[in-house]
């Protein structure tokens, strides 16, 4: 079980959270998108082998969404940060092979 640092409540068990996949995907302007761009927005999310900035919601605690760096190979937890704030740098590249989406 992961130990996840909620920015509001501190370290809690993974079972108190729901997962929200890649962080920082902005809502595009649907009027200017092609079908392919729309499909990309709806369906494609980063799936890297290594560090991933992702969303979690602390449903069994403060009910708030936040972002977290986590390594998908080692399951190491990096810094948590709030949406719409500056993203901290990815932690050192342990286990990292692929960073792009």
């Amino acid at each position: 079980m992961l130990y996840i640092p909620c920015p509001y409540c501190g370290l809690r068990n993974e079972t108190e959270f729901h997962y929200g996949a890649e962080a920082g995907v902005g809502y595009p302007d649907p009027n200017t998108l092609t079908d392919d761009e729309w499909a990309k927005y709806i369906h494609i999310r980063a799936n890297p082998k290594g560090w991933l900035a992702e969303r979690w919601v602390h449903f069994a605690g403060c009910s708030r969404w936040f972002n977290l760096w986590r390594n998908t190979v080692t399951h190491e937890i990096g810094p948590a940060y709030l949406p719409f704030t500056e993203q901290p740098k990815a932690p050192s590249n342990i286990g990292q092979e692929e960073q792009k989406a």
């Binding site: 079980m1 992961l2 993974e14 079972t15 959270f17 729901h18 997962y19 996949a21 799936n47 082998k49 991933l52 992702e54 986590r70 998908t72 190979v73 080692t74 399951h75």
Partner: peptide, 13 residues
């Protein structure tokens, strides 16, 4: 498990 991973292992819960 709820999250993306390449570790070939999951949580005991």
């Amino acid at each position: 498990d709820a999250f993306n991973s390449y570790a070939q292992r999951g949580g005991f819960h």
